[in-house]
Design a protein around this nucleic acid. Structure first.
Lengths: 337, 337
DNA sequence: GTGAAAGCGCTAACAG
DNA sequence: CTGTTAGCGCTTTCAC
């Protein structure tokens, strides 16, 4: 059925080794032999069995990307970047979704484990510590930082980023600034909340507790509900910092439904800079992490550990971000209806 | 380093075969032996080398999903669904992006070829015929139909869907209906255009050629430019049918920037039902393909061909769709600014 | 029921 | 420079 190295060898009248040499681009092959092998290669349509090669080499060229949900734009965009970075380095990317369940991830890493993938990039949604202590392969964590686990970690400075976002709201004159997205199970939520608080404190602004709204998930609907809650407060906010762009999109929608004008009546800032946020009405001011840098750094780390077998202490790398200022805070944006 | 079947066997004092039997759930193993093997298994923390197993079995449990770009929401959502469907069937999904280049795809399928993946689901962006005639593994095509290639194909009825969308515009009283997204290289574009034309013809409406606007890519920016073009026409349209939601998002934005009210001055219909389209301002009326059905059907087909080794003639399966009516055609939607 | 041995397709020593 | 040989870790006849 499938044509093997041996088939080619017999057809060319040489040994397997010679064929292997040709296939792998080994330089020192007698011209005559090379010619015959190449002929046989073409004639048979030989294609190496990578599975066998991997078994032999002990590496597969696959890395896994484990994330909560691909449909969340942030993860989709990140995944795209990871894939293209990996492709450029001749790696293939296997994507697994956890959909919030820990078991899923544990199962994934355990079963693909050391033999089918060379390493994994993990973007957890919630804090988790012990279960990925030793999956047997190099791991890079994205976004959340489970402290005191000695593994590579790539993320932006969430506290600083949040602080930057809220500062911007203060600078444009807002005084009653709410936050949407508090969540005890998310490490980044705590950090963003800390940044929010730090900015308010530094400006000497009050921090009424009713302005910090929790969100169980970070989908558009959660943002919509949270905003509805804020707007029915006796004294609603004049600005909202949302812990991601999806929450902000929902918030934007609800604000409009309640007849609030953005940013005139209420300014909104997001986090993540989803592609869609540049096109919403109004376009969304947001924290823009350098996703390409995150992807590149993560793939690089995995490669160095897995393929080049480098040994180095766990890295904790901070990637840059910017504040993308758009209509939802400074706008006069167009109206549609 | 890694513990192998043999290690377990020696530790348990039995043969490799017996351990293999236990691991693979073979029923007839003496209770005593089974106990000892299980102990040894636990003690060593044995985990099968799937690579080796695959080499032997000739199957890997991997399927590839080849698509243009993961950041395009439609593909992101689809990919998410394919992944979860596959996970439920104990398959892993390898995602490769073509980013529009044919070579990429050809390379991907050729190199991963028959040995590392059991089958591939391919979502082409442009028409292509010959190059995937025989990749050596089962293939399922999504969306575009390269005619006279005898391979499985899963898609909605694009002509009917487009016609449905345009009919809706006619029903709400629009008479000067434009189309954005014409593109000679995309099979679906031709079909959607045909549906658009059919609807207009059936209603006895004129079809001024200047109302059919091409789009090189189907990104938001392309929609924005196309809409700008339409709005500066001496006699602008009162409705626009966009060949996907991204084009529609761009069009929406441009309409607003030009002070047009949607749908009062101009109605907009999209195609794909991206998640974000339910939250835009105004929310977008759009054709909603049953993406879950597409994903499920595709994975099913691959599995039957690859894993169960079923033989059956190439299938051409049409999946259902609905028209999701929202504010961009019937609205009074809220305003934000 | 279980063990021994062959071999999936490839690469890496080691001779020649 | 090229052929032979021995495995990578597993499943699978085939005897026992």
């Amino acid at each position: 059925m499938a044509v093997t190295l041996r088939d080619v060898a017999t057809l060319a009248g040489v040994s397997v080794k010679t064929v292997s040499n040709v296939v792998n681009g080994y330089a020192f092959v007698k011209a005559e032999n090379r010619r015959r092998v190449e002929e046989a290669l073409a004639a048979t349509g030989y294609r190496p069995n990578l599975g066998a090669r991997n078994l032999r080499r002990g590496r597969t060229g696959f890395i896994a990307l484990v994330l909560p949900e691909l449909t969340i734009p942030y993860f989709g965009e990140l995944a795209g970047l990871v894939i293209s970075t990996a492709q450029r380095q001749d790696c293939s990317v296997l994507i697994e979704e956890t959909r919030g369940t820990l078991d899923r991830k544990r199962a994934t890493l355990a079963s693909l484990g050391p033999h089918l993938i060379d390493g994994a990039i993990v973007s957890p949604e919630a804090l988790e510590a012990d279960d990925l202590l030793d999956p047997g392969i190099p791991l890079v964590m994205l976004g959340e930082h489970a402290v005191d686990v000695p593994i590579d970690h790539v993320a932006i400075d969430n506290v600083l980023a949040a602080r930057t976002a809220v500062n911007h709201l203060i600078e444009i004159g807002r005084r009653r600034i709410a936050a949407i997205g508090q969540n005890p199970h998310r490490g980044t939520a705590a950090q963003r909340l800390a940044g929010y608080r730090a900015a308010l404190s530094a400006a000497g602004l009050p921090q009424p507790p009713e302005l910090v709204v929790p969100a169980l998930n970070y989908h558009r609907s959660d943002g919509a509900h949270a905003m509805a809650h804020l707007l029915q407060l006796p004294e609603p906010p004049d600005a909202v910092f949302c812990f991601n762009d999806l929450l902000a999109a929902g918030a934007l929608r609800t604000a409009a439904e309640h007849g609030m004008r953005v940013p005139a009546d209420i300014a909104i800032v997001g986090f993540d800079n989803n592609e869609e946020s540049a096109y919403s009405l109004p376009s969304l001011t947001t924290i823009a992490p350098d996703k390409a840098a995150i992807a590149e750094t993560a793939v690089q780390l995995i490669r160095r550990r897995a393929m080049d077998n480098d040994q180095f202490p766990p890295q904790d790398i901070q990637t840059p971000f910017t504040l993308e200022i758009r209509e939802s805070t400074t706008g006069s944006a167009p109206k549609t209806l």
